[in-house]
Amino acid sequence: MSERLDVRKTYKLLIDGAFPRSESGRTYEVVDAHGAFVANVARASRKDVRDAVRAARAAQPRWWGASAYNRGQVLYRWAEMADARSHELAEQVAAAEGLSAADARASVGRAVDRLVWYAGWTDKVTQVFGGANPVAGPFFNFSLPVPSGVVAVLAPRDSSLEGFVDVVAAPLCVGNAVIALASATRPLPAVLLGEMSATADVPGGVVNVLTGSLEELAPVLASHEDVDGIDLEGALGATGDLAAVAAASIKRVLRPGHGGAEAPLRRLRAFVETSTVWHTVGQ
């Protein structure tokens, strides 16, 4: 009696709420921690990057325009979806990172909890980062944190799910739209989590997940004039070059290693602007 043959999945990009193969038709082989073939993954092109940026720019006002309560619920819904499919995630984390099943499950648990933590931030940042300013004069003056806009994130190479959640959820929860470049060598947990976002009421274009070559795609993101900020967490040796390219459009740049546990709010603040409004007071 033969075992049932798997129905294997094609791993695709997430752009504007849809799952295209790369417009280039290219793929690359992803192997597990032991070198065994896992999948042919879409290899995004410069055109895919530009499409993702356009989608993110178009989607961002609606995401920021939703209530903070609503954004929190959407992120929490994403965590629910991830938790419900945690076995699937754990399987891919184990394969990608070479972890035992138990360690992979624990990692997924932490990733989901982290997403829940960010979900709870959406309606806190305004009060925590903003406030009223007692200016000398007949004015009501207040400062609000507002999103930078479109943020590109280079997910860490090694931490395929936990690290991915941090770099994506932080800019997202403060109202940015995100284009995430997954770890080139360990992309599948990120691709799965991206799929789950599409069933969690995350509006199309708010989260875009690309897979492919860091060397090819990161400079396109760093130089794109319609990208407002870039998290270089996964930039590896290219940090300096990418940061220099990003300077041409005065991007907000978060350097690798700067969003860690020792400064948990740094990543939240990295892609937030302070908008200050003065209004006259009078009869």
Partner: peptide, 22 residues
Amino acid sequence: GVIWANTYNRFDPTSPFGGVRE
């Protein structure tokens, strides 16, 4: 970064000043 409503060019040490984008 700064929006003045029914006034313009007001500055105060308690009021954050600075820009977005370029």
